[in-house]
Computed example of a mutant assay.
Amino acid sequence: FLVVALSGLIGVPAAYALARRDFPGKKLVMLLFLLPLLVPPITFGIPLATVLYQTGFAGSMSGVVLANLVPTVPFVILVMIPFIEQIDTKIESAARVFGANTFKLFVHVLLPLLMPGILAALLLVLVRTLAMFELTFLTAGPTSQTLVVALYYAVFAAGVRAVQSIDAMAVIYMVTTLIWLVIALRFVNPTQIVARAKK
């Protein structure tokens, strides 16, 4: 839930800036945001875990959260940009004409219009974070494991493990992920994620 909240707080404003502003190097910035989604997590997970261990963050909940933000923030940005582009800029201009500052514009105008997209993005981030094995495995300590990492340890750790407990964790993991995915799909049509507003 920390990963979900921080991804929303960082990703939504970043998506708005990328959707509404043109600046030199914008395509390069977009490419950098997309890289964690395009390459396998293990590719950047090992160097990232090394940095987190050197700085003292790894082995704790904060390390797990920081590691999982690397792919989830770009994911929120990628999902939110089409939703933002579909909002007519004239609505924002009208709000500013009537005296709305940036904060009021976001809270009273943009937030209600973007709420379906935000909820869908955050729910999909939750599903992705629950399923993320590599980054959590590389950076987690004994007190900060997700269910999928705990399941891995239960299966492959030394000693005898009760088969029933492993089966129970696997069922809980699959059912939890499925429930969140179904909830997410109620808020968004998957084709909206790749749609773009026509100029």
Rank of each mutant, 00 (worst) to 15 (best):
A100D: 00
A195S: 12
T146G: 14
Q164N: 12
G99A: 01
L123Y: 08
V29C: 08
P24F: 03
T136K: 06
I166P: 04
T43M: 14
L147Q: 06
D22Q: 15
L69P: 11
L18C: 15
Y53H: 13
V188I: 15
P41E: 05
N68Y: 02
A195T: 13
L2P: 02
A120W: 09
L138H: 06
A58P: 05
A14V: 14
V76K: 01
M174S: 15
D88S: 05
I81Q: 11
F133K: 11
F83N: 11
A17K: 05
A154H: 12
M115F: 13
V3C: 01
M132W: 01
L35W: 14
L78Q: 11
Q145H: 07
V188Y: 12
V107I: 12
N189M: 11
V182M: 10
I42C: 01
P36Q: 05
Y152N: 12
T50G: 04
P112A: 08
L35H: 14
T89I: 15
V107G: 02
F44Y: 14
D22P: 09
A154D: 13
P116F: 06
V160D: 14
L113S: 10
G99F: 02
M61R: 03
T102H: 05
F106M: 00
L151Q: 09
L37V: 11
M30A: 08
L2I: 13
F137L: 13
S62Q: 07
A131S: 15
T129Y: 09
V51Q: 09
L69K: 01
T139Y: 06
M80A: 08
D88H: 00
A195K: 13
G117C: 00
A162D: 15
F187I: 13
N189Q: 13
R186F: 14
A120C: 14
E134S: 15
I42L: 08
V97H: 06
Y153V: 15
V51R: 04
A5D: 10
P40D: 04
R20W: 02
K90P: 04
I118T: 10
P41N: 02
A67G: 15
F133E: 06
Q86I: 01
R196S: 12
V76Q: 03
F33N: 03
F103Y: 07
L114D: 01
L122S: 03
H108D: 09
I118K: 05
L48A: 09
A195W: 08
A15S: 08
L181T: 15
P41V: 06
L178Q: 11
A162W: 15
F75V: 03
V64W: 00
Y16K: 06
V79A: 03
L113C: 06
Q145S: 13
